[in-house]
Design a protein around this nucleic acid. Structure first.
Lengths: 334, 334
DNA sequence: GCAGATTATGTAAACGTTTACAATCAATTT
DNA sequence: AAATTGATTGTAAACGTTTACATAATCTGC
C-alpha cells in the first residue's frame, strides 16, 4: 500500500503538497495538482485512516462505535440499519460491538472504542446503573443511549414510550374481553422491563382486573426462556386466555410452544408481542404487535450523536418515540 | 485520556519502561513494575489502539473487517456471530461493513478497511467476478470469501454445498409425490443462485420430471420479491403443489402471500425454504428447510483468516460444508 | 579489582498523516 | 529599485505507540 511519501516522490513534490491536494483546502497550482493526482492514480493510493485518526483532532475522525446487547435480536438489526444509513451519509464509519448481555464484554468494547479514538458512541446500556458507560462519559466522549436510559445521569437518550405502548396493548386485550392475561416479562434488571410491567399493571388496575401473580413470568429475554415460560403458562390449571410477550424473541419462543402443543392462535390463546418485525405478517396467523421502530431509533440516535460531536457543549436531550399497536390476527374476542 | 507519556511522568520512568510493563516482554524490575502499574491504575490508562496499529507490523493489529451484502438477513447475523466469537477469543476486534447489495458501497467498505490497516477481511462478494476484492488481494491482504467464491481466483473460501442441498430438498418433494414444483430463485448474478438452480434441475431431470418454465421465478433475493412472485405463482391457472424458495427472506415473503390468500400449508401448498432460522419452529406450521449453518461458516472463516494472517504463505483452501434438510411440517404427501 | 556478562532503564527513530511556519519566487506597489 | 504582497511549496513537529540500540549499574568469576 502506497503512502503519502511515495506519492510525493513520484510526483516530485513534498508530502505537504500531496496532503494539500488530497484535502483540497489550501491553494495548489493546477499543474502540480495534476502531477500529484496522476501519481495518486498510478500508485492506487489510499489515505491511511489510522494515521489520519492519530493525527487529527476530535470530530474529524469520522468514526463512531455502537455497543449493543444482542445482534441476534432483529430489533437491534433495525437500529444498526438506521445508524449506519445516517452515518454513511455523513461519511462516518460504524464499528459494532455485540456484548451478548455480558457486562464484561460490554466493558471491553467500550474500552476498545475509546482506544480506537471514536468520535462518539451509541450504546444500549446493559442496565440502568451501568458503571461502564459512566467511565466513558467521564472521558468526555459523546454518547447517546438508546432503548434504555441511565439513572441519574444527564445524557442523550433515544427511546420509546414502553409503558404507554404496553398499556395500549393490554387495554386492547381487555376490550376484547380478556381478563386472564399473562405477561412474560424481559430481564428484570433492564429498565425497559420495569416500564413494560408498569404499563401492564396500570392497564389492569384501570379496568379493575386483579393480576394473578401466577401469570407474570420474568424471563431472561431470550427465545428459549420465552418457550419455557409459555409451556409453564399453558400447563397451569387455569391457563391464561391471552399472553403479552415483552420482546420479539420471547414472542417467537412462546409461539413455538403454542404450536408444539397444538394450541390454536387466536382460538385457544391470544397473543400480542412487543416488537414488530418486517415479517410479522408471515406468521400464521399474522401477529398483533406493539411496534417500536428500531430504524427510527437508530436514525435519531445517529443524528443526535453527530450533533453532539460537532457541538460538544450542546445540552443533552431525551427523545421518547411513540409506539404503535399493529392489530393483525393473533387476538380474538372472548 | 491518559497517554504513555503521562503514565511515564507520574511513575518517574521513561515511556519505554511503561511500554515494557504493558507488553510484559522484556524484563523489568518488580519495583518499577509496581510503580508503573499504580500510575496506570491512577490515570485509568488505556493503550491507544490507533497508535498501536500505526506502529505495529502486520498480524499484530488485532483487527479484522467483515463485508456483507445484507445484515437484515438472519443468515448473515449468524455468520457475524460465528466470526465474532472466534475473533473475540483471539482478542481480535471485528469491523462490519454492510453494503446492502450495493457494489459501490462494497468498494467503499473494502477501501476503508484497507485504510484501517486491518489484518485481514472476511467478505461475501457481491458476485462471482467481483473486481473490488481482486484489488484487495493485490494489496496482499488476507481474505476469506464466504457463501460465494470468486471465479478464477485462488482464494480461501468457506461455503456450502448449495447444489446438493437443493437437490436433496427437491428429491424429498418428489418422493412425496410432487411434480409441479416451483422455484423462486435468488438474484441471478450471485453464484449461489446458479448452484441452487442447478440442484433443482438435476433433481427434476433425475426423476424425469419436465420443468414448467412458468414455475421458475427469479427474484432479487428480497422479502418483497418473494411475496410478489409467490402471488404470481398462486394466480397461475395451474398453480404449483409445492414451492422451493431460495433464501430465508424469499421464504418469509412467500409465506406472507400464502397466508394472505388464505392458502393452507401444507394442505394447499407445500414449501421448503433454503436457510433455516432458529425460530423456524415458531412458524405455523413449522418450516421444512435446508439448513446451512451461518454460525459454522463464520467460525470456519474466522479461523481460516487467522491462520492466513499468521502464516501468509499458507496455501489457499476451499471448505465446502454440507447442508442439512430439516424436515418439519410444511410439506405433505400428495 | 577488573574483564565481561547480566539486568534494568533510557533515548530516539519510526509508523503515515496534518498543519503551523518558513521559504521562495514572481508580481505589484510606491 | 526597494518594499510589499500573494501564490505556491517545503520543512519539521506532532499524534501515541513499539523497539533497536545505547547506557548504566550490578554481579560473576578469576
Amino acid at each position: 500500500m502506497a503512502s503519502l511519501k511515495q506519492v510525493a516522490e513520484r510526483a516530485n513534490v513534498s508530502i505537504a503538497t500531496v496532503s494539500r491536494v488530497l484535502n483540497n483546502k489550501d491553494i495548489v497550482n493546477p499543474e502540480t495538482r495534476a502531477k500529484v493526482e496522476n501519481a495518486i492514480r498510478d500508485l492506487n493510493y489510499l489515505p491511511n485512516r489510522v494515521a489520519q485518526r492519530l493525527r487529527s483532532t476530535s470530530s474529524k475522525k469520522k468514526l463512531i462505535g455502537v455497543v449493543l446487547p444482542d445482534v441476534q435480536n432483529p430489533f437491534y438489526v433495525d437500529v444498526i440499519r438506521g445508524i449506519e444509513e445516517t452515518a454513511y451519509r455523513n461519511q462516518f464509519v460504524v464499528m459494532i460491538g455485540n456484548f451478548s448481555q455480558d457486562e464484561e464484554k460490554e466493558r471491553l468494547y467500550l474500552d476498545i472504542f475509546q482506544s480506537e479514538e471514536v468520535d462518539g458512541m451509541i450504546v444500549a446500556p446493559a442496565h440502568g446503573r451501568d458503571q461502564n458507560i459512566l467511565k466513558v462519559l467521564e472521558n468526555n466522549f459523546a454518547v447517546v443511549c438508546i432503548d434504555r436510559g441511565l439513572a441519574d445521569v444527564d445524557v442523550d437518550v433515544v427511546k420509546v414510550d414502553n409503558e404507554e405502548g404496553v398499556f395500549g396493548a393490554i387495554e386492547y386485550l381487555i376490550s376484547l374481553g380478556h381478563k386472564r392475561i399473562a405477561h412474560i416479562t424481559g430481564m428484570p434488571q433492564i429498565p425497559t422491563t420495569a416500564e413494560r410491567v408498569k404499563g401492564f399493571e396500570r392497564a389492569m388496575k384501570k379496568h379493575g382486573i386483579k393480576i394473578d401473580p401466577d401469570l407474570i413470568r420474568p424471563s431472561n429475554s431470550s427465545y428459549e426462556s420465552g418457550a419455557e415460560l409459555m409451556a409453564e403458562l399453558l400447563s397451569l390449571k387455569k391457563p391464561p386466555t391471552a399472553v403479552f410477550t415483552a420482546n420479539n424473541l420471547i414472542t417467537l419462543g412462546a409461539l413455538r410452544t403454542i404450536h408444539e402443543r397444538g394450541c390454536k392462535v387466536p382460538d385457544d390463546i391470544s397473543i400480542i408481542g412487543f416488537d414488530d418485525m418486517y415479517w410479522s405478517m408471515s406468521l400464521n396467523p399474522p401477529l398483533t404487535a406493539v411496534r417500536q421502530s428500531g430504524y427510527e431509533i437508530g436514525k435519531r440516535a445517529a443524528s443526535m450523536l453527530l450533533a453532539g460531536i460537532f457541538t460538544p457543549q450542546r445540552s443533552k436531550r431525551q427523545v421518547v418515540l411513540p409506539t404503535e399497536l399493529i392489530v393483525r390476527k393473533s387476538c380474538r374476542r372472548i
